[in-house]
Simulated scan of single mutants.
Amino acid sequence: MAFENPSREEIKQLLLGSKTIAVVGLSDDLAKVSHMVSSAMKDKGYRIIPVNPNADKILGEKSYASLSDIPEPVDIVNVFRRPEHTPKVAEEAVAIGAKTLWLQLGIANDEAARIAQDGGLTVIMDRCIKVEDSILLPHGK
């Protein structure tokens, strides 16, 4: 059976119930999409946790080398990495007990989706979290 993203209503409920977003591949470069999207989500009230082994701080938050280094619960793992890197991220997301694996616009990987779903996570692929949040929660939570 082919992968299918959750319905818009399910995504809305997921966003309403989420506070903490770990962003894998978050860049400290202001011109990068990962930075712009994460900054917008932070402005909407989400707690952003950068996952980038090459940065100390991004968006004023401590950056971690991997998901397993994060010392607090994570609701959504938002991924800005090439598709071939996402199965490992999915394994880590399952291991830390995240609720959702979200692969950004242009990123999809059936193996990553299977790993995350088998681990009990909701999976969203090839969608921009900022766009979905803006459409579904235009006035915030």
Rank of each mutant, 00 (worst) to 15 (best):
G119R: 05
D118F: 02
L101P: 09
S18W: 03
L105K: 12
I49M: 05
V74E: 05
V79G: 04
F3R: 09
P83K: 04
N78I: 03
I96P: 09
G120V: 13
N109F: 01
L103V: 07
L26Q: 08
P50G: 11
T122W: 00
S63N: 06
E9N: 11
A108I: 10
L26I: 10
V89W: 01
P138S: 13
A108V: 11
Q104P: 06
A95N: 14
N109Q: 10
I107T: 13
L101K: 06
A116T: 11
I129M: 15
V24W: 00
K42D: 08
E111M: 08
I115L: 07
I49T: 10
M41D: 02
L103D: 03
D133Q: 11
G60C: 08
S134F: 07
P6S: 07
D110Y: 01
L105T: 08
H35F: 15
A93E: 04
N78S: 14
E61H: 05
E10D: 15
D43Q: 14
I11Y: 00
M125Q: 15
A31S: 15
I96C: 10
L15R: 04
G25Y: 03
R127D: 12
D118T: 14
D133M: 02
I124Q: 03
I76G: 01
T86Q: 00
S34R: 00
A95H: 08
K42S: 14
G17E: 13
V74A: 06
A31M: 11
V24P: 03
N54C: 00
A31H: 12
E111R: 13
H35C: 08
R47F: 02
K130T: 07
D118L: 05
K44C: 10
A2D: 14
A22R: 01
E111K: 14
